[in-house]
Design a protein around this nucleic acid. Structure first.
Lengths: 262, 262
DNA sequence: AGATACTGCATACATCGTTCGCAGAACAGG
DNA sequence: CCTGTTCTGCGAACGATGTATGCAGTATCT
């Protein structure tokens, strides 16, 4: 039999104490990759670059990591370790989840490449599981199925990354002037003004730099709405479309025709 | 002056009718790429592979596309063209947005690589703008700021892709047995049972294959909750979070957990 | 007709992830 | 202490990929 699923790096012991003492360890390698990514983005994290950053030969990393993807997983999990759980335990699940989300946002802002790294994969490293554990703990007293809780957390993470991505892009637009974005703006207005997209046009010609809330306030407001909408008791929501509409007991029709004037 | 932002393929005319008649066009190239991606996933879409699929030389594609990323944009926009807007115009914004979301889900399910392709980038092709236009049209009568509408649509898309990704993964788990997933499951239970993650353990040992709703019902239910939560009038939800920088355990139950009845 | 500006394409290059094989270091057992 | 085993670092190389370049030919414009 082969080793039971060495397909995940988290199941493989970091050291099998037989041979010579390794020069590095997973954490140092992850740190080196993170430094490169912080400085020059994800594409700068190549096997050779990380190797020379560590003062090692180009192929030495493969003693610690089976593939580049595993290196990225190491990096992801290490920055997930920057999350603090001190502000939790308020007794209010929403406050706790918001605190978690803010921590997550902080990590994204500190390491923007994390947005791209986690876009395709779902992190499952130890720190990610710790995060998940705390999120579930926050929801311990909420009366929905575990399944619903996991869904809510997954969606929460998706919304956090979406909001933070928008924030990062907007921040980039502030200092540097990426030409592709200039092009996109030009193209967008051009299409919108062509006449076939009236709603888009009005949406874009709205008040752009108006007195907006701070990013944090916006972040909290949206997440609050999403979470309160998501985590209603399990039997609500399937029958009532309008969140604040009174739920008629016995009304099992899924018609979304409530609260509308004929 | 250089050409005004030829950085986006959508700003560049497909043909500048000067030279010989091109053998292909963007749509055929996109179709070839889509066929490859449908069959063998995104990594199978290499410049050479698409070229030989078209019966062309390895470097010929660069007459139509400046980079591989642009080829992906072409593919993304072409599958976005599969969206139908027939079921819209119900007069109920929620129904219309749900119809849009279901269409989006269908496209994701038909072309799972789209999940990876759109994970990092935000599609801005013509069909994506048409989609956005219809989404904004559905929200025309909702009394929130344009900004809020755009946010809601962005989050809607993020949630749709998150849910659909889960669906695709679950579908793959059904037929084939990807070993990395076997490994993940093993690892997850192993960590959960180690004792340090009690909530995770209970969440995982829940009733997995219980009588669940159909995927479509689940999809609709979650999206309904998210959307109704998001698109409350703009003055609600902004004040609820800000009021208390200080969290006290055992304090007032939040208005989110209780119903909205006066 | 000539100039122009495009087309297809073969070739080439740089870079990347990854594999292979070997010399040497640490540990286990006697 | 010695010997075998098992690991380590790593130089070198392989295959694949995205992309640039130059050339021969063709369609359009003046």
């Amino acid at each position: 039999m082969t080793e039971p699923s060495a397909h995940s790096i988290w199941l493989r012991p970091e050291r099998a104490g037989r041979g010579p003492t390794p020069t590095f360890d997973r954490d140092r390698i992850a740190a080196a990759g993170i430094a490169l990514a912080d400085a020059d983005g994800l594409p700068a994290v190549t096997m050779r670059a990380v190797a020379v950053a560590l003062g090692a030969g180009p192929a030495s990393l493969y003693r610690y990591v089976a593939t580049r993807d595993e290196l990225l997983e190491l990096m992801i999990d290490r920055v997930n370790g920057e999350i603090s759980y001190d502000a939790l335990g308020s007794g209010h699940w929403l406050d706790d989840l918001l605190a978690l989300a803010r921590q997550s946002r902080s990590v994204y802002l500190a390491h923007p490449w994390l947005l791209d790294a986690t876009a395709a994969r779902t992190p499952v490293g130890p720190h990610a599981l710790t995060y998940l554990e705390h999120a579930l703990a926050a929801l311990a007293d909420v009366d929905v199925s575990p399944r619903t809780k996991l869904e809510a957390i997954a969606i929460l993470n998706a919304v956090v990354s979406t909001l933070t991505r928008a924030e990062v892009i907007q921040r980039l637009a502030g200092q540097t002037i990426p030409q592709w974005q200039q092009a996109q703006a030009e193209y967008l207005t051009q299409v919108a003004m062509a006449g076939h997209h009236p709603h888009l046009a009005t949406a874009l010609t709205g008040q752009p730099p108006e007195a907006e809330d701070s990013s944090e306030a916006l972040f909290d407001r949206i997440l609050t709405r999403v979470l309160t909408g998501l985590l209603q008791p399990d039997d609500i929501g399937a029958t009532s479309v309008r969140g604040r509409a009174k739920v008629e007991p016995g009304g099992h029709s899924r018609e979304a025709t409530e609260g509308r004037e004929p």
